[in-house]
Simulated scan of single mutants.
Amino acid sequence: MPISETDVRHLRRCVQFAAEALADGDEPFGSVLVDGAGDVLFEDRNRVKGGDQTRHPEFEIARWAAANMSLADRAAATVYTSGEHCPMCAAAHGWVGLGRIVYAASSAQLQGWLREWGVPPAPVAALPVTEIVPGARVDGPVDELAAEVRSLQRQRFARTR
């Protein structure tokens, strides 16, 4: 499905959440859950700085959706995110039956940037969402927003060096 102006608007919000996370000393990721009617239901950012590496916004969205939405409503929803889901978040997305995923930057892009900057690999492999959830409807990356995500990630790793 092509990326619409509405998609870009929601992705911009995700990038704003990522910037907010970075400003708070956290990893720069943000996500938004939108229902089938276009209403924003849940928004969050990464909250892993306290040591719980499962506090990704996409995982929080899956938990929230499972507790607050019917299966049909979950399937009709869209998850927008600054970066493509990690395997943990992709699995949670698939298990609760959420619908479309739209991301600003892909896992492959992030991994390329990290290699370029000499950052050691993460303890979990970066896989495309569709390798974890084969039937997932996924769109992205969005070049102009991927550049903003790259800048946020660069700032993150510049702080740790």
Rank of each mutant, 00 (worst) to 15 (best):
L114E: 14
R161A: 12
V15T: 05
C14A: 08
H85I: 00
L98G: 00
D39K: 09
G30A: 04
D26K: 02
P87E: 05
Q153T: 04
V15Y: 14
V124Q: 15
S151R: 06
P120E: 10
R161H: 10
H56F: 11
E84W: 11
P121V: 06
R154A: 15
L98C: 07
D73Q: 12
L71C: 02
L127C: 08
A90R: 09
K49H: 06
V142Q: 01
A147D: 11
S107R: 15
A66R: 11
A21L: 01
H93K: 06
H85K: 11
G94D: 10
V149H: 11
A136T: 01
D7K: 09
T78F: 12
E144K: 02
R156K: 11
R74C: 12
L145R: 01
V32H: 00
A37L: 10
E131L: 06
W117M: 15
R115K: 14
A77M: 09
L114T: 10
D139S: 15
L22G: 12
V8K: 14
Q111L: 14
E20F: 07
P28L: 00
P57H: 02
A75W: 11
L152F: 14
P123V: 03
D139F: 06
Q53E: 12
A126H: 13
T6H: 13
G118D: 11
S82M: 04
G38L: 04
A146L: 07
V40A: 00
R12W: 05
P57D: 01
S31G: 08
L110W: 07
P121G: 00
S4I: 05
I61F: 14
W64N: 04
V34N: 02
R150Y: 15
M88T: 03
I61V: 12
A90W: 08
E116R: 10
R161C: 06
R100K: 15
V40R: 00
G38W: 08
A66M: 08
F157T: 01
V133D: 14
G50V: 03
T6W: 12
G36W: 06
Y103K: 03
P121L: 04
A158K: 01
V138A: 00
G97M: 09
W64C: 07
M1A: 11
F157S: 01
R45G: 02
R74V: 10
A108I: 05
E116L: 14
Q153S: 11
M88S: 08
A90Y: 09
D39I: 04
F17N: 10
Q109E: 15
M69V: 03
L22D: 09
V15M: 13
E84G: 05
R12P: 08
